[in-house]
Amino acid sequence: MNETTNQEKKTFWEKLLSIDRRIIFLFIAVAISLPLFFKTSLDMPVSPVVQEVYNAVEKLQAGSKVLVSFDYDPSSMPELQPMAESFFRHCFRNNLKVIIMGLWPQGPLQANIALEQVFKDEDIKAKNLQYGIDYVNLGFTAGNEVVIDRMGHDFRESYPADSRGTPLSEIPLMRGVRNYDNIDLILNLSAGYPGTQEWVQYAVDVFHVKLAAGNTAVQAPSMYPYIQTGQLAGVLGGMKGGAEYEIALKRPARAVSYMFSQAIAHGVICLFIIIGNIAFFSSRKKKTS
């Protein structure tokens, strides 16, 4: 009976404080899902750190060699896969040669999925890109940062053959490539260890290569100090970084369409934070009085 009386005395804000968490989950689920149906793309400015990655690719001459290290697995796909696809599009559009590798076992497989997607584009299909001449997938090799270090001396120390088992000496694209001296730009797509930090420590600061990075949003803030010191050419931070890169490329794709959901979800979270704070302070005021 007393409990019922207490329930009746509860104000609106107090009731909000004891709201079932599942209702909040439901709001977030709707906020995430509903915008996906509208296919609306948000217009957003390209931040300087993303523009730097774009510029780094634009500055390369046709035929330049780009090394892309896929250091993530399927759990980070929503954030990093759109970046991989956009970067491949950019490279192939500018007739750059792409060398793929991975320090994570599933990384090179992610690269194959991205390539499959990119090859569906009419303009890229028309280029009739050949494996071994225009792009190559070296696959995964164990050893984490030691692999990065050994590649600085000779790629063959870590990768005697590509992912298909073909010796590097028999691959036309790899014939002129001995170490990082023959690579014009490296992009590291990373979701943790080994990743961008190891590439900075073992490739940039030892062999002075030009490195750009695409990171999950959790990682991105730790990478920004490397830009200020010139250790990184640019960073694509999380889904937003990927979306900005798509805009810079003038080819909005998945990341841009996802950003509408992202924005609505963030709005709902902010709203809940504000409501929660108002409820907390108003109930505290009542207790004090």
Partner: peptide, 11 residues
């Protein structure tokens, strides 16, 4: 950034 990352996975 962490919230954005988790939301990205949910998306």
């Amino acid at each position: 950034y962490t919230v954005m990352s988790r939301m990205s996975l949910l998306i």
